[in-house]
């Protein structure tokens, strides 16, 4: 049976980390436990419908608020493979990169997507396609330092590789 095409969850601006993963669940550290509460205060339809490969699209200041890495962890563990936003709060951006959840700053794509639109993604190339509208968007390349982290599949892996290289 063909897999359903990945779809977009489209939200507004200032989607803060309390909405992505409420503080009341921060005693949990396991990704699966966090995934059970992802977005529950924001969107009651998220958890029942999210599937691996889906993408969250937000407007400005996505991931604002606390430094909790639990927020990108919860998104990743619930099946989200990338977040596209007009802009990101900086700690969320760092955390997502550090755990290997791609985050793309693409205001034009954000303007084009509606809730539920089918999406196809090429993370390596930074290419996003909205299958409904037929429009394709190209994200700006990451700076080298960030690309190194993504290629190593996270900051801790990069550090371990560097340590081995240094002997």
């Amino acid at each position: 049976m063909a897999q359903p095409q990945p779809k977009v969850y489209r939200y507004g601006r200032d989607i803060n980390t309390d909405l992505i993963l409420p503080a009341r669940y921060m005693m949990f550290n396991e990704p699966e436990d966090l995934a059970k509460h992802c977005m529950e205060d924001l969107d009651g339809d998220f958890l029942p419908t999210v599937r691996y490969g889906d993408v969250v699209v937000g407007e400005e200041n996505f991931g604002s608020g606390s430094s909790r890495e639990h927020a990108p962890m919860a998104l990743k563990a619930s099946g989200i493979v990338a977040v596209i936003a007009s802009s990101f709060a900086r700690i969320f951006f760092r955390n997502a990169i550090n755990i290997g959840l791609p985050v793309l700053e693409l205001p034009e794509a954000v303007a084009d997507f509606r809730h539920g639109d089918p999406i196809s993604l090429d993370i390596e190339e930074g290419i996003v396609k909205n299958t409904r509208s037929g429009n394709t968007f190209q994200a700006k390349p990451y700076p080298k330092e960030i690309m190194d982290i993504i290629r190593a599949d996270g900051l801790m892996n990069l550090i371990k590789q560097q340590r081995i290289a240094q002997g």
């Binding site: 890495e69 700690i91 955390n95 550090n98 900051l155 801790m156």
Partner: peptide, 13 residues
């Protein structure tokens, strides 16, 4: 402010 992976990295290095 940093996250938990950043913290692990900063404590390590």
């Amino acid at each position: 402010g940093i996250g938990s992976t950043d913290l692990a990295a900063a404590w390590t290095t």
